[in-house]
Design a protein around this nucleic acid. Structure first.
Lengths: 342, 342
DNA sequence: GTGAAAGCGCTAACAC
DNA sequence: GTGTTAGCGCTTTCAC
């Protein structure tokens, strides 16, 4: 058993109150002598306050909940790193929940965090069917602490959000392909109901439309933001389209797609150009360095953490939507289309 | 404020005790009627027990502390994923602490976790100077809950450990280079005091010695398990050695080294062979797919979590050291040495 | 079958 | 300056 306030009180022949007062550096009226005594014995006994008890009475735990779909995904782990760094410098810790992209786990996770009395919840990448959305929305509303959504945005949620301008990101990616003369541009999306997916889809559509290019449904392939999803989608693209370019909604799926293309001995970028999204660390070190849309995960995490800290410190403070602007990083996986074959 | 037992008791005109009994499915004597009533109203009011209060009285929080040097490193994030998956299926959550490879943060972290009443601590990759080691050792001993060390092993700690056979891993990596005819083999290590580093160094030394090769100190370069450390070490290798092969103590540093070599227009594997350690997801997708020693991060995490769960459930249970055996994955970054130049 | 009361370790209002 | 007391939300012993 750990050493408690009571132990120190007993040892020093003082009351628990006095000890608590001193140890919490309360601006108070305790004599130098007793203060020193208490400080010294606390040190000697290696006292650390029981945070469960503190949390219970203060209704504040210095704990923040972080819900993430897949911590092994580089984008999310960097996001988590940024959040942890910021929280850590404010003496707050993180409870990490990995949902595996499972909406059920997400919902359970929120309840778990509530019951653990976290001071705020940072929520990433929920992908919800319309049916789940209202459930989710009610749930979020029932959380009495600040909720910050990252990487997804539903206006009805009425909480602060940190996100990338996904629409623009997709737009510049596709525009880049169009500028290179591509007209048959397939895309590998994420799950249909994810707002990130929807926003990127909008950007893709906008760029195509502006260029007067057709938008055949059959050029859009539904992935899952995971490598094998990208690999599978690429197979389908090869079978059912004559695309000369692929826009993958994230880098990890782009890598999966690269593997498929390699398997079929299709050259990137000579036969097919490919552009990703996220700019994860390794995208520049691939066999063919990947052209991609930069998304500053660490900074997004930091900003989300800062907003959470703000809302914890000043409960009434205004909700904000913080949007990061993307930029394109052109590497070797995209190339001007050779010549119009027909 | 959340709904409490008291709220339910009031609503149902029953006592807090009865409500608690029912909600905890205690094998008890409550009439069907009251039981149903309680269950129903709890459901209606969306009751979730306050885990702080539960933890305080039960001295068990269903929380496990995880201390990791760098969650953005693929090896550690996969480790975390394995741990989380296993814990999650036992209704336990994780408090994640990122130390940034900083021994001070590690020590503070352990105290933080203690004061939060975690049921166990899983501790990865501590790299400690002899001076810090005794401090650390005392600290670990002062923790009254199970501690599982992962990816580092100090016999004096007297707690369960899960690890890779690092010595063998390094041995087979270097042996592979030797079999390919290399004799000038540089290595990029981790921080000096890390036991993982020491063990891999032993394996390196053993393989060299067995082959009757010299072991010049100046062929060993101290890295930090990070990309830029690998890049820097490779610069030094180029300047001060005539190595034809590099054994990097992890993949991330190997990638840094690859970048340096590329910058200097040195071909891998034609001019220099390179072998890494970890087999992180991307190592097979690099410009030159990396030969590396496989380390099953997810499984190691799972196993660590299982051992933690065992020790939580059965406090007296025997401590164990679980060792995973490595194997070499040969890809394109290593090649037989062309010809002896002299 | 059900409830009262004590106590987990702490903070904070109030008394002295 | 210092101590008493109540209470945070829960479990658990014991009494009825």
């Amino acid at each position: 058993m750990s050493v408690t306030l009571k132990d120190i009180a007993r040892k020093t022949n003082l009351s628990v109150t006095t000890v608590s007062l001193v140890l919490n550096k309360k601006p108070c009226r305790v004599s130098e002598n007793t203060r020193d005594l208490i400080l010294k014995t606390a040190e000697e006994m290696n006292y650390y306050p029981n945070q469960l008890a503190v949390g219970l009475v203060k209704q504040q735990t210095n704990t923040v909940g972080l819900i993430i779909p897949d911590i092994s995904n580089h984008f999310y782990s960097n996001l988590a790193l940024g959040i942890d760094a910021e929280m850590n410098s404010h003496n707050k810790n993180i409870i990490l929940l990995n949902t595996d992209f499972d909406a059920g786990k997400l919902v359970r996770g929120i309840n778990v965090l509530k019951s653990r009395g976290v001071d705020a919840i940072i929520l990433t990448a929920a992908s919800l069917s319309p049916k789940n959305l209202s459930l989710y929305s009610d749930l979020i509303r029932s959380v009495s602490v600040p909720v910050i959504t990252v990487d997804h945005y539903y206006p009805e949620l009425n909480c602060s959000a940190v996100q990338l301008n996904n629409r623009k990101g997709a737009y510049i990616a596709v525009k880049h392909l169009i500028n290179y003369g591509h007209t048959d541009i397939a895309c590998i999306t994420g799950p249909k109901h994810s707002t990130v997916t929807l926003e990127r889809l909008e950007g893709y559509r906008l760029a195509m439309k502006e260029a007067g290019l057709p938008l055949p449904e059959k050029y859009m392939f539904c992935g899952n933001y995971r490598q094998e999803g990208g690999a599978k989608a690429a197979e389908e693209i090869l079978q059912s389209t004559k695309a000369t370019a692929i826009f993958s909604f994230n880098d990890v799926m782009a890598m999966g797609a690269c593997q498929t293309l390699k398997k079929h001995s299709i050259s990137i970028p000579d036969d097919i150009s490919i552009v990703g999204f996220d700019n994860i660390d390794f995208s520049g070190m691939l066999a063919v360095p990947l052209t991609t849309v930069n998304q500053p995960a660490y900074e997004i995490g930091q900003e989300a953490a800062r907003q959470a800290l703000q809302e914890i410190a000043h409960p009434g403070v205004e909700k904000r939507t913080i949007t990061f602007e993307p930029h394109l990083i052109i590497r070797d996986s995209t190339k001007a289309r050779a010549a119009v074959k027909d």
